[in-house]
Design a protein around this nucleic acid. Structure first.
Lengths: 169, 169
DNA sequence: AGGATTGTTCAATTGAAAATGAACGGATTC
DNA sequence: GAATCCGTTCATTTTCAATTGAACAATCCT
């Protein structure tokens, strides 16, 4: 690779920047930090797998950010390590998973389900306290509302697999 | 209402606090600020509609927060003004919408669709730029990836109404 | 009219979450 | 075993969105 190319690749060209920004916006909706969007976005438009150092250089982010970002993206199943092309190469390269099914599945598994679960536990505790209230009308009212919360949780749990299935083509 | 009750209502009792916290967690998953969760949560477990001042006093938040929070919740259709009980009362009172269908619908309409729309616009612009690239292989690759993005968008648009319908009982 | 009450707006502040970067560990090569 | 390379960790710093609160309507009451 010649010097001109090195120089060019030290930063994103305008087109790459635009695509990356789309992902930055996208992940913010999901409540994920911008670095996640930048990393995934750059992988998404790169023809070759990229190393951690590539990300650091081209996105101007720290090694720490890149490392943590890749860790999260791996846990989501949104990036995978690229198969090493034969000869001994220490550095690991990453490529994006681009099947929507996989991305949605990972997000649901890692970000949604844990919250649903911890929410259920908290609600159970609350239901227990509520059932011991003295005032019968207050107890009645709270029980109804807690029941409503449980309905929401159930609806959510039921819909998630359907959602995954629908997005699976 | 006597002084003892006034005092008691100046803050949340432990049970109320627990419920409110569930909502605080809940809205954070959705990328909304904690005050939104607090306000909706308190309305959710209150037997009577509450005024802006009630929220300020009981949640220890500023009038500004309460006002802006209520505005967002109203735009989401998650909160509505309670019918005035007869005699002239200037203050407006709020009660929560507790039908999951309505809540999900509002969230999709206000928070999801706008992002999908602005995303589509950006992607169209990018597609235009990409189609003018010199290098044919680069152009080809980018076009494929952009096509993939469009597929995602379409899947999302198609799934949203289904989601609403599924949650509509 | 003037004063009291209710709610909104927005510039300034705060705080929680993200990003940094130095230190570290492990693996590889010479 | 020393030097180098690659990646992780985590205490500190930075950033940016949420919150505050004072000024400002708007409306009501007498």
């Amino acid at each position: 690779m010649n010097q001109a190319q090195d120089k060019a690749n030290e930063s994103l060209d305008p087109l790459e920047r635009q695509v990356v920004d789309v992902f930055v916006d996208g992940v913010r909706v999901l409540g994920l930090p911008r670095s996640i969007g930048e990393i995934y976005g750059l992988l998404f438009i790169s023809r070759e797998p990229l190393s951690l150092d590539d990300l650091v250089i081209r996105l101007h982010i720290s090694k720490g950010s890149a490392s943590q970002g890749l860790r999260l993206l791996k846990s989501l199943g949104a990036v995978r390590e690229a198969a090493q092309n034969g000869h001994s190469e220490r550095r690991t390269y990453y490529e994006p998973a681009i099947e929507l099914k996989r991305l949605v599945g990972g997000f649901i598994r890692e970000q949604i389900r844990p919250h649903l679960k911890s929410g259920s536990i908290k609600i159970d505790r609350i239901a227990k306290s509520a059932s011991q209230l003295e005032n019968p009308e207050q107890r009645q009212f709270l029980s109804e509302r807690i029941e409503r919360l449980n309905q929401w949780m159930n609806s959510g749990s039921k819909v998630l697999p359907i959602l995954q299935k629908l997005l699976g083509q």
